[in-house]
Amino acid sequence: MLKSLARFALVGAAALSITSGAIAQEFSFKFQSSDPAGNPNFELKKDWAERVKAMSGGRLEIEMLPVGSVVEHNETQDAVSAGILDGHITDTSYFAGKDPAFGLIANPVGAWSDPSEMLRFVEYGGGKELMNELLEPRGLHFIGATTPGLEAFISKKPLDGVADLKGLKMRAPEGLVQEVFAAAGAAPVNLPGSEVFTSLDKNVIEAADYTVFSTNQAQGMHDVARHPVYPGFHSMPLVEVSMNKDKWDALPDDLKAILEVSVRDFARDMTSQLAMKDLVAVAEARKGGDITIHNWSAEERAKFRAIAKAQWEKVASRSDNAQKVYDVLTKYLTEQGLL
């Protein structure tokens, strides 16, 4: 009898082990980031992937790959659609060349003064629906968004207002961001984030729209560009978390819910942690004395925003999708008293 019970227990344990193993390997995805390995933003993305694994009891595993691991930063949309990648976490601006609507929804330059404004638009103001109208016909599903926050501005030259942008050789993402800076008199060029430091160091560019102050500081940007503008006056990118639509559709509802909730938490995690890091980094930079931080006046910020708003309408006229983004966005901004 005891031997029979022992055999039963062993069979049961083996079955449980097989079941647990099957559950642990139920879904395994590769997501590519637009950030390089070691970048604080990339580390936060890896933390998100670990939380997804824990929340799903190991049923859903996501491997986060740094920029350029499989394809270039502006090729991930096609790679996800084709199933070469399962998903990506990236600045939507990179796909403005496919439809100007991507540039407008990703970074309506001058629209946002705080991450919460943009994240509310995505979740409750029509942004999520717009993103899926843009992405699902291309074979992707938009899960949610995060943002590093209101970006600082990297510069080798003192910048105290719009007039100082004239002729400035600078890096800016594709689409609306480039057009706004060009309208303000700058000379923007398209470079991946991984080339910003080298391009500044070799004087290929004099300034860059890149990311938040603390990340710029951590990556040594201020060692070669000692005149940052903080708080930023310009840019707060929508960083999309999207995946292959067929693979999304194949997920059970509970894992879909875990992904959606985890991305909302990821957004809070990223914006909060980077804002805290910014305050520490700014204090350290000021204490060091080698960096001059420039804070634009309200008047100069208003001048730049007026230039940006004029470009929104121009972009809206270029495609039906862009016009729809413009209509939904300006309606939200007006209703919320932000326009």
Rank of each mutant, 00 (worst) to 15 (best):
K324E: 13
W296N: 02
Q323N: 15
I23R: 11
H222S: 05
L16A: 15
V224Q: 05
A281V: 00
D86C: 04
F153T: 02
P192C: 09
R305W: 02
S20V: 14
G220H: 10
T147W: 06
G97A: 10
N295H: 11
G21A: 12
E195Q: 11
S155W: 06
A152V: 00
S113F: 01
A184S: 07
S214D: 00
D164M: 07
S56Y: 03
S155L: 09
N321Q: 11
E75K: 05
E284Q: 10
S17L: 13
T292W: 00
F266D: 02
A9M: 14
I205Y: 02
R264E: 12
A145G: 10
T330R: 06
E43A: 15
V162I: 12
F142E: 02
S81T: 07
L251V: 03
G38S: 09
F8Q: 14
K247S: 11
R138C: 06
A13D: 07
E179W: 03
V328T: 14
Q219V: 08
Q77T: 09
P137M: 02
M221D: 07
V122I: 15
M221T: 04
A225S: 06
A106Y: 05
G58E: 00
K166E: 15
Y124M: 15
D223W: 09
T19L: 15
L5G: 07
N41E: 15
S242T: 12
F142D: 05
D278M: 05
E61V: 13
A267V: 03
L65M: 04
V282W: 03
T147P: 08
R318G: 00
K277D: 12
S155Q: 03
N244Y: 03
P231M: 09
S69Q: 03
D201W: 05
L5D: 12
P188L: 02
S242W: 01
Y230T: 11
G21S: 11
D320F: 12
V261H: 04
E284G: 09
P115Y: 01
L119A: 08
I62M: 00
A163W: 03
L135F: 11
L339Q: 13
T146H: 13
T215R: 08
G193V: 01
N244M: 05
V177A: 03
K314N: 12
L333F: 04
M118W: 04
N244H: 04
H234K: 04
A172I: 05
R268S: 11
E50R: 14
S319D: 00
D246F: 09
G110T: 00
E260Y: 08
S194E: 15
K169Y: 04
D201L: 07
G149C: 09
F29P: 01
L255R: 01
K303D: 12
D265W: 06
D327M: 02
S235G: 12
L259S: 05
G57H: 08
L329V: 07
D265K: 01
S262D: 08
F95R: 01
K98W: 02
E195R: 10
V122M: 08
P36Q: 13
D278A: 00
E72A: 13
K331C: 06
S28V: 14
E43D: 15
V229D: 07
L333K: 04
A79R: 03
H234C: 13
T198P: 07
V229K: 05
